[in-house]
């Protein structure tokens, strides 16, 4: 890296908090915007899959999910405590909470792996699982957003050529709700 790399030593923050914290808060805002979009997508698509498995089918027993969530949230507390101990120079306390955080993280990953194993191998729920019927495509999709679909057709023909060249309609497979949920 260039020798001209700068620091801001000597330039006191114009706010009561440091620029590092402001940067991290801004970054968290971007994360919140990102995940809000995914959650909105989940809400938008929920219930639109007409064949199973539905969320209610695969989340009958959510004990693993709850335990994993508790472990994940607990790791936030322990890493905070580790950080506090580090700043106070309490090395042994820091090491204790640091490894506890790692253990909680590993436990969360194991719980998630168990959960995903069940979803994929017991419920056959992958990103491309849920089958939608063609009759539903005509009766439900076109009647709900007729102009939307028509506009999509118009765009296609305007941009790329006659509709007759369009490839044959394919079977739809969708697990969008699950995918978004997994992201969240």
């Amino acid at each position: 890296m260039s020798a001209e790399a700068t620091t801001h030593a000597g330039h006191a923050s114009s706010l009561p908090i440091s620029h590092e914290k402001v940067g991290m808060i801004s970054f968290l805002v971007t994360e919140a915007a990102f995940f809000t979009t995914l959650i909105m997508s989940y809400l938008y698509y929920i219930g639109k899959s007409k064949t199973g498995p539905q969320p209610a089918d695969v989340f009958e027993d959510i004990s693993v999910t709850i335990i994993s969530t508790v472990l994940l949230l607990s790791s936030s507390i322990t890493v905070h405590l580790a950080d506090g101990a580090f700043k106070k120079g309490k090395h042994s306390v820091f090491v204790r909470f640091w490894f506890l955080t790692i253990a909680l993280g590993v436990a969360f990953l194991v719980g998630t792996a168990i959960e995903w194993h069940g979803l994929i191998f017991e419920h056959d729920l992958t990103i491309a699982t849920n089958f939608f019927r063609h009759d539903l495509f005509h009766s439900g999709r076109f009647s709900r957003f007729p102009r939307d679909a028509r506009r999509a057709d118009d765009e296609y023909s305007l941009l790329s050529g006659p509709v007759a060249t369009r490839p044959a309609r394919q079977d739809g497979k969708c697990g969008v709700g699950f995918v978004v949920l997994a992201f969240c």
């Binding site: 938008y44 639109k48 007409k50 539903l136 495509f137 739809g172 497979k173 969008v176």
Partner: peptide
């Protein structure tokens, strides 16, 4: 690339509008 159909209007429930 992964077979989902968020925006593929050929699949019921998917939405180009979204």
């Amino acid at each position: 690339h992964l077979g989902s159909h968020f925006f593929d209007t050929q699949s019921p429930g998917a939405s180009a509008l979204f």
